[in-house]
Simulated scan of single mutants.
Amino acid sequence: MSEAKARGPYAKSAARREEILRAARESFAEHGYAAASLRDIAERAGITAAGVLHHFRGKEELLGAVLAQRDSEEWAEGTARVASLEDLAPYFSARLRKHQEHPELMCLWIELAAAASRPDHLAHSYFVDRQAHGLAHLTEGLREYAERGRLRKGISPGSAALMIEAMLSGLQGKWLLNQDLDIIEPLNDLLRLLIEADDA
């Protein structure tokens, strides 16, 4: 069997999974996780509910895959766009603006993050691991700049990372309550307070 033929079924299966994830993401955003149904997801993907269950064991597994996909996209984008500390403000500003284009998904994310604070929630471990990974990654980047005297004196890299992550989450919640708010300027103000200008 040729390599192209061997890859054929796998490629089709991967493409079908991507289509199901797109459909699930849309359904979760429109209806919320609790009200979204496998039937609706299947219809959006152009297959039957049994077809969805051929690729995913249920709605819980779909939710985990959607969350992981969203994170993977943002991590890849961040890695590609943030080469230095000067790139942080433009990157985070662009990330907030992108989230504002899909307020339904933003709302779902915030609701899930709050609900997942319960240890028995299906996404609890996911959010705990995600937070730990995100804070560790950002802290490491800020530590390099602290060693070069670019982080505000008296503020640890870990504290700065936590403030930035908290600001990003909190601003989105405030914006959902009042979409006339400018949430980009406060974020940039925080970054200016935390990060010393490069005098070089």
Rank of each mutant, 00 (worst) to 15 (best):
A4M: 09
A6E: 15
S13W: 07
A14P: 02
A15N: 08
I20N: 09
E26M: 14
S27N: 05
S27M: 05
A29Q: 05
H31G: 09
H31I: 06
H31R: 13
G32M: 02
A34L: 05
A34P: 02
A34V: 06
A36C: 01
L38A: 01
E43S: 08
I47P: 00
I47F: 07
I47L: 07
A49S: 13
H54Y: 08
H55L: 02
F56H: 05
R57Y: 14
G58T: 00
G58C: 03
G58K: 05
K59D: 00
E60L: 11
E60N: 13
E61V: 06
L63P: 08
G64W: 14
G64H: 11
V66Q: 04
L67A: 08
L67D: 01
Q69P: 03
D71R: 07
A76D: 15
E77R: 11
T79I: 05
A80P: 00
R81W: 00
S84F: 01
D87T: 01
A89S: 10
A89L: 04
Y91V: 00
F92R: 02
A94C: 01
L96H: 04
R97I: 15
H99Y: 14
Q100C: 11
E101R: 10
P103L: 11
L105V: 13
M106Q: 11
M106T: 13
M106P: 03
W109S: 15
L112P: 02
L112F: 06
A115V: 07
A115E: 05
H121A: 08
L122I: 10
Y126P: 15
Y126V: 14
F127Y: 14
F127T: 04
V128T: 15
A132L: 12
H133K: 14
H137G: 14
L138R: 01
E140C: 10
A146Q: 07
E147W: 06
R150F: 04
I155S: 04
S159E: 10
M163G: 04
A166S: 14
M167I: 08
L171A: 14
G173N: 09
G173P: 10
N178V: 10
N178E: 13
N178F: 10
D180K: 13
L181P: 11
D182C: 08
E185S: 15
L187M: 09
N188Y: 00
N188R: 12
D189S: 12
D189I: 14
I195Y: 03
A200K: 07
